[in-house]
Amino acid sequence: MRNIAAFFSILMPGFGQIYNGQFIKGAFFIITEHFDNALGQINKAIHLDLNGLHQQAVETTNFEYMLFYPGFYAYCVWDAWYYAKPNADKTKTAIPFIMGGFLGEIGAILANRLPIPTLTVAMLMIIPMICGMIAFRNQ
């Protein structure tokens, strides 16, 4: 099922590709995600942010690596969702995922001005992607 593949990739980029049977691509995405996450200190920032230490979360993050993450994340979710259905329309279905990646990038750039940066950036990415999955469920 298409939505299951997408939700696996929302949980961890690469899991949706593995669910679709694309093991090499999935393994590549998982390795890329782990390196980017570790070098950008994204999990540490999420931990600090959700515990109320918002400014420390922004200061901890290495934005040289973190700014790669929203686009990569949105692409992984779209890729899992798109390739789970044969003959899907690639041009239309990508729009909400591109919007999610773009909004995630803008949110990351403006993170020091957001009240809860990591949660806000996550919602800026995930909400358009889920709306796209609902809107284009038949394509």
Rank of each mutant, 00 (worst) to 15 (best):
I4A: 13
I4P: 04
F7Q: 01
F8P: 06
S9Q: 05
S9Y: 05
M12G: 03
P13Y: 08
G16V: 04
Q17D: 07
I18M: 10
Y19W: 14
Y19C: 00
Y19L: 12
G21R: 02
F23T: 13
F23W: 15
K25P: 05
F28T: 12
F28A: 14
F29P: 00
I30Q: 05
I30V: 13
I31H: 03
T32E: 02
T32S: 10
E33W: 10
F35Q: 04
N37L: 13
N37I: 14
L39R: 12
G40Y: 01
G40H: 00
G40R: 00
Q41H: 12
Q41I: 03
I42L: 12
N43R: 14
N43K: 13
N43I: 09
I46D: 03
H47R: 08
L48K: 14
L48E: 15
L48F: 13
L50Q: 07
H54R: 13
Q55T: 14
Q56C: 04
T60D: 06
T60M: 10
N62V: 12
E64M: 03
Y65G: 01
F68C: 06
F68N: 06
Y69C: 00
P70R: 00
P70H: 10
P70Y: 09
Y73N: 03
A74K: 04
Y75I: 12
C76Q: 11
V77D: 04
V77L: 08
W78M: 13
W78V: 07
W81G: 08
Y82L: 05
Y82G: 00
Y83K: 07
Y83T: 06
A84M: 01
K85Y: 08
N87A: 09
N87S: 03
A88K: 03
D89I: 04
K90N: 11
K90E: 13
K90W: 15
T91V: 10
T91Q: 12
T91N: 13
K92T: 09
K92H: 06
K92D: 05
T93D: 12
T93A: 11
P96R: 12
P96N: 13
F97Q: 02
I98L: 15
M99W: 03
M99N: 01
M99F: 09
G101M: 06
I106T: 07
A108N: 14
I109D: 03
I109C: 04
N112Q: 07
N112L: 02
P117G: 01
T120P: 03
A122E: 01
A122T: 08
L124H: 05
I126Y: 12
I127W: 06
P128Y: 09
M129F: 02
I130P: 07
I130Q: 11
I130T: 10
I130V: 15
G132Y: 09
I134E: 05
I134R: 05
R137V: 05
